[in-house]
Amino acid sequence: MTIEFRKQGEVFSFQDNQGNDIERKTEIRFDPLTGESARLIFDPGLKIQPPDYTEACEQTGGKNCPFCSENLQKLTPLFKREITAQGRITQGGAVVFPNLFPYSKHNGVVIFSDQHYVRLEEFTVEMIKDGFLAAQSYVQRVAAVDSKARYASINWNYLPLSGGSILHPHIQVMVSDSPSNYQKMVAEKALDFKKDMGKEYFTALCETEKTLEERWIGEVGDIAWLHAFAPKSHNDFIAVFSKAYSIDDVKEQNWIDFSTGLRALFATLNEQGFASFNLMLHISPNPESKQPIHVRLIPRLTLGLLNTSDINFFQALHQEPLSFKLPEEIAAIALKHFEKIQ
């Protein structure tokens, strides 16, 4: 099993109402690790208009928000003493507390700061770093008291288009006895790759993409960034913590470097008109497998005058992503912003 960037094309031929021939090409790409397919479809000149949440901020902030400072201590729940004697975990301006509506056996919510509405360009390295350091602390505390909960991830729904139900920026930290479908498939396929090739997949992927320079974006410290070959949305950025194979391997400097790169990606999203995203940081349950921590980030949006969801039957039921954007072109946009931070 080698890293293969496999794709195939399909062409739909038809005529307009004047009898002129039209051809539309669909490119089907296959993920080099899992074999899952994604479709690059005709771009009609997609123009994204980011929503403005200023009015919503005024309506939902302060006394109306459980995460704002006047309500945080009164309305958010507490962890049991085995996690922290203080009930909540703090790191700089970040605070971690239990999710009232958990997705898994252990589910913490991390708020970044007192600021209720933070635009992409307003996130600072310090703010992001503290949020993820706090999330790391929660994962480590759970691991110390529950050996069965081995599947950990840090997840971010930013703004309502991503599925975020509260405007106040926050991330979700999940630690479960059971893997998600993504965690299960990646673990199995990465193990198969290592048995077959004698090397770890994400390390090999970074080496290959860096050599090709087609979807490679750059490195900040020990964090490598690239764009997925078979994207899960119109952008699909991957970050690889090249020297961190467990949550304990991640140092504060790694979070600083990650936050620096993430801000460059926020600028990349901004340039395209994207204001919302989903992010997942996956932590391998087995440090001995030497699978580095990796991140995926995709934008979320609505389409047209009806504010149509960007997810339709193809993604939801066929479970195959669609993208209007060519990964190589998006990587080139991101590269410009990464060059500014070097």
Results as ranks from 00 to 15, higher is better:
G163L: 07
M185W: 09
M197R: 09
G131Q: 03
N99Q: 13
T84V: 08
Q73C: 04
V139F: 09
N99C: 11
H106F: 15
K105N: 14
K105A: 12
R81F: 00
L191G: 02
G61L: 06
F132V: 02
T60N: 07
Y182F: 06
F123D: 03
D177S: 06
E121I: 12
M127V: 07
K189M: 13
K184D: 01
K195W: 02
A144Q: 15
N64M: 09
S147N: 10
T60K: 04
S137Q: 11
M127F: 06
I128V: 14
L191I: 09
A144C: 09
V125L: 10
I111T: 15
S162L: 03
I83V: 06
H170S: 11
L191W: 11
W156Y: 08
A143P: 07
S165D: 14
V186N: 02
T60I: 02
T124I: 10
L133M: 12
W156E: 04
E70A: 04
T84I: 08
H170K: 09
Q73D: 01
A85C: 03
K80W: 00
F193E: 02
D146S: 10
P102V: 15
F97R: 13
G131C: 02
G61S: 15
S165N: 14
M127I: 10
W156S: 00
V145H: 11
D146H: 13
A149T: 07
Q86C: 03
N155Y: 01
P179T: 04
K184V: 01
L78K: 14
V175S: 01
F112Q: 04
S69M: 05
D177M: 08
T60S: 07
P66C: 06
G164H: 05
G108H: 15
V110A: 08
